[in-house]
């Protein structure tokens, strides 16, 4: 390394402003992530599923008054796939499987976005308080986190949802209670590690405030693993959520994959495989795709595995 050597890139970039630089960096990272074929595949599946969720009102006639309730065609129960008007067949109660699959994607997207949004925020706040302030506060928060982490996610969410009574809103609430703890632990660990960096001392020595140090130095250098965890959770939440609705903790008739699988399972023994299989496959695809993307992101972003 010679001090006077030209920087890695030629001087063509001298005039580029801060926004351009940040965009270029984002572009570089994206390209690096997508170099891995399984990650790319995950991303393609995710984009497809989310497009389906967005296009659902165009591809199907929304049910009235509530589009998230399955429409019932009592004239065509148990129709096999390929039936005109019921491309993927119908359930024993005349629910259109295609409708359930498409609007189920919407339900899943809503559920996972809400739960990830809430848990990531709560977890980041709790973990930040614990890690940045430390001492007794840290101990108190981390005791709670340790206890909650000791209970398997599914069992814990099941217990809460069961106590609150069967409704989809309660499932979302239960998932939110369960899923924040991991973020708290991740962020706390990161912050404890990051706050000993000399750039934090550099900020203290120029006299910047604690809040600014948290905002500019500590948090931005601590969040990458949270992004990875959030991606993984986008998948996990749908999996756990579908499991809870499968065992009857959501309202019957909801356009939700777990509900549909449960409704269709009675017909499997009589050869009516479609009512369960299509929504089941959707849950599988959804969870798999986000896990592939999450793993790919981790490889590139997570400092502990050698990335950036």
């Amino acid at each position: 390394m010679v001090d006077t050597a030209a920087p890695r890139e030629p001087l063509t970039r001298t005039e580029s402003g801060p926004l351009a630089v940040r965009l270029r960096r984002a572009g570089e990272l994206t390209r690096e992530v997508l170099r891995n074929p399984t990650t790319l595949m995950g991303l393609i599946v995710i984009v497809t599923l989310i497009s389906l969720a967005f296009l659902a009102p165009l591809l199907t006639e929304p049910n009235r008054p509530d589009a998230y309730q399955m429409p019932r065609d009592w004239g065509a129960t148990n129709a096999p796939p390929g039936t005109p008007g019921h491309l993927l067949g119908t359930t024993s109660t005349g629910g259109d499987v295609l409708y359930g699959v498409l609007w189920g994607a919407r339900t899943s997207l809503r559920m996972s976005l809400i739960v990830v949004g809430v848990t990531m925020t709560v977890g980041t706040i709790m973990g930040s308080i614990a890690g940045f302030i430390g001492g007794k506060v840290d101990e108190f928060i981390m005791r709670i986190v340790d206890v909650l982490l000791a209970i398997p996610e599914l069992i814990f969410a099941l217990a809460i949802a069961a106590v609150l009574g069967p409704s989809f809103a309660n499932i979302i609430f239960a998932l939110s209670v369960v899923f924040w703890v991991k973020y708290a632990r991740i962020i706390r660990g990161q912050i404890i590690h990051v706050k000993h960096n000399e750039y934090v001392d550099s900020a203290r020595v120029i006299g910047d405030s604690k809040l600014n140090i948290y905002r500019k130095d500590v948090l931005p250098n601590s969040v990458t693993p949270v992004v990875v965890q959030a991606t993984l959770d986008m998948g996990n939440i749908v999996l756990v959520g579908a499991t809870l609705s499968f065992i009857g903790l959501a309202e019957a008739g909801l356009a939700e994959w777990g509900v549909l699988v449960s409704e269709g399972q009675a017909g499997i023994s009589s050869g009516r495989w479609w009512a369960s299989t299509f929504p089941g496959a959707m849950v599988f695809l959804w969870a798999l795709a986000f896990n592939l993307l999450g793993d790919g992101l981790r490889d590139v972003l997570d400092p502990r595995t050698g990335g950036r």
């Binding site: 960096n197 000399e198 750039y199 001392d201 550099s202 020595v205 120029i206 006299g207 250098n221």
Partner: peptide
């Protein structure tokens, strides 16, 4: 505070990478 500054040994870890 403003009249007393510090230059750290490790120029890698004393600059915020972000």
């Amino acid at each position: 505070r403003r009249n007393c500054q510090f230059v750290f040994q490790d120029a890698f870890s004393s600059l915020n990478p972000r």
